[in-house]
Amino acid sequence: MDKLQLHGFNNLTKSLSFNIYDICYAKSEQGQRRYIEYIDEAYSATRLTQILTDVTSIIGAEILNVARQDYDPQGASVTMLISEGHDVPETVTNAETPGPLPESVVAHLNKSHITVHTYPESHPHAGISTFRADIDVSTCGRISPLKALNYLIHSFESDIVIMDYRVRGFTRDIAGQKHYIDHEITSIQNYIADATADRYQMIDVNVYQENIFHTKMMLKDFNLDNYLFETDQGALDKDEREQIQRQLNQEMAEIFYGRNYQLRR
């Protein structure tokens, strides 16, 4: 798409809602409590502030204000008010290419905000614990928050990722014509690095005429050891391992597809 010659400021609002889920099995009630404590420490308000600070760096923004809170008994929230950086590189684009991974950081953002909220929880009987983090990146201007996707996916232990991207409002060109989107996009998937995309099953639901894009991701490979908290599968008998794997697979499928299933025994 050719560069638009705008009349005044780019008034488009681009919003990315990004939900990640980490799922595990803790055999005892005490183990479930320790998992929640572990998650609360690993994703405290301080750690989340650092992740969002890195996101603002990736998209070239400046932090104006930070509000953060750890909650009792669990969970944390961080909200950042941000503004466009003073030096915006001319190379910044909205092209459907992956954003940087944690090792490299470049891009730009206009006045807006970033928020994150965490929701650790446990099933009272089945031993399944699920950690959810909701992140919203809302920008005004010519860069898309999608450029921060790769970094965010790698910043959390993401078994399932659910993303919504929407462009709202309009901006005018110098002839007065309204533009309801200022960059080409066919799928959120095009902003994800190939090495990351290869690890996930992905589904798109897009409404192009409304500039609404939705992508869901779930890890393809399942290794039970990666989902056991303070438990080694060698300490479980065959029936226990199979039952726990069915429970974990059901939990992941229900979150991914957004509906409940009857567990097969």
Rank of each mutant, 00 (worst) to 15 (best):
D2H: 14
L4P: 12
L4E: 01
L4N: 06
Q5F: 07
H7E: 13
N10R: 10
L12V: 06
L12E: 02
F18M: 05
I20E: 05
I20C: 09
D22K: 13
D22H: 14
D22C: 07
A26S: 14
S28M: 08
Q30W: 03
Q32C: 10
I39E: 14
I39D: 08
D40M: 08
A42R: 09
Y43A: 10
T46E: 15
L48T: 08
T49G: 10
L52S: 02
T53I: 00
T53F: 08
T53K: 11
D54F: 02
V55M: 05
T56H: 03
S57H: 13
I59T: 03
I59W: 03
G60I: 00
E62T: 11
I63Q: 04
L64S: 06
N65R: 13
R68T: 05
Q69I: 00
V78S: 01
I82D: 01
S83E: 12
H86D: 09
E96K: 04
P98Q: 04
G99R: 02
P102C: 10
P102R: 01
P102M: 05
E103A: 13
S104Y: 13
S104E: 14
A107I: 06
A107F: 09
H108A: 14
L109S: 12
N110W: 06
S112A: 13
H113M: 11
H113S: 15
T115H: 01
V116C: 11
Y119S: 13
H123R: 05
H125F: 12
G127T: 01
S129W: 06
F131W: 06
F131G: 00
D134W: 03
I135C: 11
V137L: 04
T139V: 12
R142A: 07
I143S: 12
I143D: 09
S144I: 01
L146M: 07
N150A: 11
L152C: 02
H154V: 07
S155Q: 04
E157D: 15
D159P: 02
I160W: 03
V161K: 08
V161Q: 11
I162H: 12
M163V: 04
D164F: 05
Y165P: 00
R166T: 08
R168A: 07
R168K: 10
F170P: 01
F170H: 13
F170N: 10
T171R: 00
D173C: 09
I174Q: 10
G176Y: 02
Q177G: 03
Q177P: 01
Y180N: 11
I185T: 09
I185D: 06
T186I: 04
T186N: 08
S187I: 02
S187H: 09
Q189T: 10
N190I: 01
N190M: 03
N190E: 07
Y191F: 15
Y191S: 04
A193F: 05
D194L: 12
D194G: 05
A197Q: 13
A197G: 05
Q201P: 01
Q201D: 13
Q201Y: 14
I203M: 12
N211F: 12
I212H: 14
H214K: 08
K216V: 03
M217A: 06
M218H: 05
D221R: 12
D221F: 06
D225S: 14
Y227F: 15
G234N: 14
G234H: 11
A235S: 15
D237N: 15
D237L: 02
E240G: 07
R241Q: 15
E242M: 09
R246V: 13
R246K: 15
R246H: 15
Q247T: 11
N249K: 15
M252L: 14
A253H: 05
I255G: 00
R259Y: 10
R265S: 09
R265F: 08
